[in-house]
Structure formats: C-alpha cells, structure tokens
C-alpha cells in the first residue's frame, strides 16, 4: 500500500508556477502579502507598534511614546558574562530575598554549537505598554505608572492571589513572603529613581556595559539611538503576546 502510494508520489509531475491557475496564484500572493504586512508592522519591534512605519522621522516617532520619560532598557547580550553583579546589586538595593528575584540571567548552552558554546540572556520586568499583569490583577495592586510607564506594585493592596504571576509572559514576578505581596522590578523607582539617583542599580553594577537604561522618548538618549537604528538587529522577547515590552535586546 505504502509502496504504491510512494510510487504514485514519485511519478507526480513537476508543479511549475506556470501550471498553477491564475486564480490560485493570486490568492497565494494575497496571503503572502497579508502575512508579511503583519510581521513588519506589528510585532518585530513591538514596543511602539509605530516604530516600523515611523522610522521615517524621529519627530513623528517622538509623539508616539505615551510616557515622559518613557523608561526603557536595552541589553547588548553578547557582552553578558553572567558575573551576576547586577543580580547582587539588585538584591541588595531592593532587599530581594534568597528565593526571589527581580532580574536574572538565563543561559543557552550547546556543546555542539560552532565556536562559542554559550550565550547569556539577562531578563527583568519588561514594563510593557500593554501589561498583562496589570490587566489580570483583581485589586489594582499592580499599576502602570501614567507618567513614567513603570509597572509598579502597590503592596498593601496585594492579596497574594498570584494571578499576575501567571499572566506575566516574562516570569518577572515572585511572591515575597515577608511583604506578603508579589514583588517585581520597578526600574529601582522606589530606591533610586524617585530620589533622583540614576541609573538603576543593575546598570550601575554591570562591568561589561550590557545594560543601557534611559528615556526612549528622548532622541538624544542612547536607548533611543540603539532602538531606532537599522545596522544591528533589535528585538524583544515574546512579541507575539502583544504586551509591547519596553526592554530591548541587541548585540554590541
């Protein structure tokens, strides 16, 4: 049976483009166009879905950032060496317990890889423009700051239901037993930014210049420069969730 089927398959003629009826071809092209359209316009540089089309003039782009300052972080991941000074500094600054985390380093390792066998990926809260955690929270204990765009916790309102932890696409939240509330990265707002100290503790601690922090709405800032150039790839994690994160990744 399989043999016969295989034989038939082998005897099938070449389906060259000329042989496809016009109608079908047009449909195919249409689908192709739609798919490409979604890809380029939507999620690649998701933050501001306008980035892709807005690459024309920075002035136009500037108006598309909803926050001022629009805090953002860019990672040059090939420079990360997992020394975890950022983690230590964060834990110390924000009193993160042993079992918790606000930022961490992930590792991808393959012994079969050509040349370099590992690469590290630092992660933290992406301070999304459409934060799924904020939408999920039943008590408004986690909010998107209307001025800075930082996703913050209002600890006393937290009932510890952990819905936000499930909702977060970036696993950026943990339950703090001592505070009896979920805790997460707030770009050091409480401990540093609100007191006029910049940048965040992790950025200050990084010895390799992996983390760059700044105002994405300011055309003079480095984060703006890195996100809006075309020379090197810039991407976000899990763009398909539509959360529009404000944490970007690139290479040095």
């Amino acid at each position: 049976m399989i043999k016969r089927w295989f034989k038939e398959f082998k005897n099938l003629g070449n389906e060259e483009i000329e042989k496809i009826p016009d109608e079908e071809r047009r449909e195919f092209l249409k689908i192709g166009l739609i798919i490409t359209g979604v890809f380029a316009g939507g999620s690649l540089l998701s933050v501001v879905s306008k980035v892709a089309e807005g690459l024309a003039t920075p002035e136009e782009l500037k108006n598309n950032y909803p926050y001022k300052p629009h805090y953002s972080m860019v990672f040059k991941i090939d420079l990360c060496i997992d020394c975890e000074r950022c983690v230590e500094a964060c834990n110390l600054t924000n009193q993160v317990p042993d079992y918790g985390w606000r930022t961490m380093i992930l590792e991808r390792y393959s012994s079969k890889a050509v040349d370099q066998k590992r690469i590290f990926l630092p992660i933290l809260c992406n301070h999304c423009n459409h934060p799924p955690c904020v939408i999920a929270c039943p008590t408004k204990a986690t909010i998107k700051d209307s001025q800075t765009g930082i996703v913050k916790m209002v600890s006393y309102k937290c009932i510890g239901c952990k819905t936000c932890m499930t909702a977060c696409p970036y696993n950026a939240r943990y339950f703090n037993e001592e505070r009896h509330a979920v805790d997460k990265c707030d770009f050091c707002w409480e401990k540093r930014l609100s007191k006029g100290i910049t940048p965040t503790a992790c950025v200050e601690a990084c010895p390799a210049g992996v983390r760059i922090f700044g105002d994405l709405s300011d055309p003079l800032s480095e984060v703006y420069r890195l996100v809006h150039q075309l020379g090197k790839p810039v991407w976000v994690l899990k763009p398909e969730t539509g959360a529009k994160p404000n944490v970007f990744y690139t290479i040095s």
């Binding site: 090939d78 420079l79 990360c80 060496i81 997992d82 020394c83 975890e84 380093i105 590792e107 040349d115 370099q116 066998k117 590992r118 690469i119 590290f120 390799a208």
Partner: peptide, 12 residues
C-alpha cells in the same frame, strides 16, 4: 570578542 567562551559565569 566571544566573551562567553572564557566567561562561563556563575552558572558555569
């Protein structure tokens, strides 16, 4: 270049 070749990090 190739930082993570020698820098195996805390994980390594």
């Amino acid at each position: 270049t190739k930082c993570a070749t020698c820098h195996i990090g805390v994980k390594g």
